Simulated assay, not measured.
Amino acid sequence: MAKQSSRFDYFKSRQIPELTVLQASLCDFSYDRHAHEEYAFGVTLAGRQDFFSGGQFHRSPPGNVIQFNPEQVHDGHPGDDSRLGYVMVYVPSAQLEASFADAAGCKRAGRFQGSDTLLADPELRRAILDLAQLMIHQQGTRIDQEHALHRMATRLVQRAGKFQPGGRVSRPDALLLRAKEYVLAHLEADLSLDEISQAAHLSKYHFLRLFRQQFGITPHQYVLSCRVNAARSDLEAGVVPNEVAFRYGFTDLSHFNRRFKRIYGMTPYQYQRSIAQ
């Protein structure tokens, strides 16, 4: 009997449209390294989930929670011959800032960054799965989903212990942040390494070394990731894939399809159709 192919199902919350959940079943697919603008909270349901992030490789067995901060580079693939099943909820930081600050008792905690990528935490797992199920089955009210978000944020802050505001940003971090901001502000332009490194006030050589060392991804991969993320937002707004491909500098629709699929598991058209259901 032929082995079933991988399956990806995306759902948008009807109560909180900014939220997206992915229900995935993988057997023959590997994600390219990429980063999302949102927080991502996942639970491995079956099989083993292997991925690179934060300079190291991780293995997530069933029941484990995976948490990516915004802009945290990662990839992913099944870790053995069994089918990998998981859910992943994508949450913009604005949806969590008040809950993080409330849980920490500190306004500056709104930009909370989790230090652990893999967590064995039944309470956090339950909150993530509760929110995912509400979204997948289009159940509950807005406040039900907000309650699940608040439980997730509270548990993450509890695990972190006493919140410590971040210290001064290092010079390399500040320079690379300038480069990232330049990329995000010029996604529709024909960007060059010279322009990006100049925005960071670094030579091209030092910029390439620092960027790869800091983020585990090349500037080229980062630009593609940002363009695909921006394209996803346009697709959700109803812009046709051909127009989106042209807007963000993809050679043609075929090129756009390939790049988008390496990050979201499906073509732009399939994604647009999936979230419209």
Results as ranks from 00 to 15, higher is better:
A199P: 00
I128K: 06
S274Y: 02
F211G: 01
D194A: 14
I196K: 05
G167V: 14
V223A: 03
G110W: 07
G63V: 13
S6P: 07
L134D: 15
H147Q: 03
L124E: 14
Y86M: 04
R273D: 12
L210H: 15
A276E: 13
D50T: 13
S25Q: 15
L191C: 00
H137R: 13
R108E: 12
L22M: 15
D102C: 04
V244G: 05
D80W: 11
Q270K: 07
G216K: 03
K180T: 06
V228F: 07
E38H: 12
G63Q: 12
R262C: 02
F211V: 03
D234K: 10
R126S: 05
K180D: 13
A120W: 11
S203P: 08
D116M: 04
V43T: 10
S93G: 03
K261A: 10
Q133P: 00
G114K: 01
R171V: 15
P122W: 10
P165G: 10
K3N: 04
A200Y: 03
H255W: 04
R111K: 05
A153H: 06
S170V: 08
G216R: 05
I66S: 00
G166V: 09
T20M: 02
S5I: 00
Q221T: 02
V169F: 01
E236K: 00
D173Y: 00
A98T: 09
V91N: 06
Y182R: 14
Q221R: 08
Q198M: 09
F29V: 02
Q198R: 10
H206Q: 11
L191F: 03
S233T: 04
G167A: 04
Q213I: 03
P165F: 14
L119F: 09
V239D: 12
Q164K: 11
K162R: 13
K162E: 12
G167F: 13
A132F: 11
S99I: 05
G85V: 01
H58Y: 15
R212H: 12
R159Y: 02
V244C: 08
L129V: 04
F11I: 07
A276Y: 11
C27Q: 09
R155E: 13
A179V: 11
G216I: 07
K3F: 02
D81Y: 01
A185V: 01
L119H: 10
Q56D: 06
A174M: 04
A174P: 02
C106M: 13
E97H: 08
F52W: 03
L22F: 08
